[in-house]
Computed example of a mutant assay.
Amino acid sequence: MNKNLQSILNKYGSLKEPFFFTISYDLSQFYIKPLEELPSDIKFEINEKISSKLSHKESLVKTPISFDKYKKSFETLQNHIKEGNSYILNLTAKTRIETKFSLDEIYEKANAKYKLKFFDKFVCFSPEKFVEIKKNKIATYPMKGTIDSSIENASAKILGNIKEMAEHTMVVDLLRNDLGIVANKIKVEKFRYIDKINAGDKKLLQVSSKISGQLDENWHAKIGDILTALLPAGSITGTPKKKTVEILKENENYDRGFYTGIFGVYDGNSLNSCVMIRFIEKDEEGNLYYKSGGGITCDSNVEDEYKELIDKVYLPF
């Protein structure tokens, strides 16, 4: 646990000072700044009512991890599942991409609920809310399960898929337990509802649930305690969380950094945040890498999971 991160968040919350925050996957890096002091080269937008309509298609040149390399990691995770070390693990990788657009242009054109351009380092256009706090009520929205909407009866197929049901249920159970650490009266308000997501040259259906709980009146002064207790997000790690994070660190062969971390805003009254998926990062040489992944269970098929990892590499224009 990062005590410095915790104390800074608690301080701004206790003062009811509106602020922006972003926190890396492993909580080792963070950036917190009062909204009135936010630099112009950090841009963000939260727009939860967006159209799923695609205006035009933009292609990307993708150079993903090789299937053999991915398969090796996949098989290692399957062995861990068989040994009872984990039940679901969110395996991710980075894909080299080429596009005619700059990070600024991608940010401006992206159609997403949550958008962030962080200096000239990365851009994120996430569909996945992390936690929202309003009037002492906290809610989280785990997203787990993806299908191409062009597949016949796509909605019925993903909702009726036993593997997808098991995967989603495990994540919902994990998030219920996580919320129980910081809140009372935990309940699943919506279980497995579908969102339509722009995915470049196609639309994806993604399955989410809503879980909520009640916080104490003085939650503002405990924002740091709340967020650090819930991080990293269960939907992009797995269960049991601590052991799963260790296994993923050994097998992903790259540093996630801010990818699958969170960003959000506290306005003095409420808090809204997202999980940073759909993420493009620029390295020191100017190369662009798109980081993506998906949940692995005992029923997962390696070819399908590899395809999903690549399908999630897109520009949401």
Rank of each mutant, 00 (worst) to 15 (best):
K3M: 13
K3T: 15
I8Q: 10
Y12R: 07
L15P: 01
K16W: 00
P18M: 08
F20T: 08
F21N: 08
S28I: 01
F30V: 00
I32S: 08
K33L: 00
E37W: 01
K43D: 12
K43E: 14
N47K: 14
L54V: 15
S55C: 06
E58D: 12
L60G: 08
T63C: 07
T63Q: 13
P64H: 11
K69I: 11
Y70F: 15
T76Q: 14
H80Y: 15
G84D: 10
I88Q: 13
L89K: 06
L91A: 11
L91T: 10
A93F: 09
F101A: 07
L103S: 07
D104Q: 14
I106C: 07
Y107E: 08
E108V: 04
A110W: 03
K113G: 02
Y114A: 10
K115Q: 12
F118I: 11
F119I: 02
D120V: 05
K121L: 13
K121P: 01
V123R: 08
F125V: 06
E128R: 07
E128G: 09
K129H: 02
K135W: 02
N136K: 07
K137S: 02
A139K: 15
P142K: 02
K144L: 01
I147E: 04
S149Y: 00
S150M: 06
S155A: 14
A156R: 14
I162Q: 10
M165E: 07
L174I: 04
I181M: 13
V182R: 11
N184H: 10
K185G: 04
I186G: 05
K190T: 14
F191S: 12
Y193K: 14
Y193P: 00
D195S: 14
N198F: 03
A199I: 14
K202R: 15
E217N: 15
W219K: 02
A221V: 01
I223W: 04
I226A: 09
T228D: 09
T228S: 13
L231I: 04
L231C: 06
L231N: 05
T237Q: 13
G238L: 14
V245A: 12
K249Y: 05
N251G: 10
N253P: 02
Y254E: 02
Y254W: 00
D255T: 15
R256A: 14
I262E: 06
I262S: 09
G264K: 05
S273C: 05
R278M: 05
R278V: 03
R278N: 06
F279D: 04
I280K: 05
K282S: 06
K282F: 01
K282I: 03
D283L: 03
L288D: 03
G294E: 04
G295C: 06
D299T: 02
S300K: 10
E308W: 02
E308L: 03
K312N: 09
L315T: 06
F317D: 07
F317T: 12
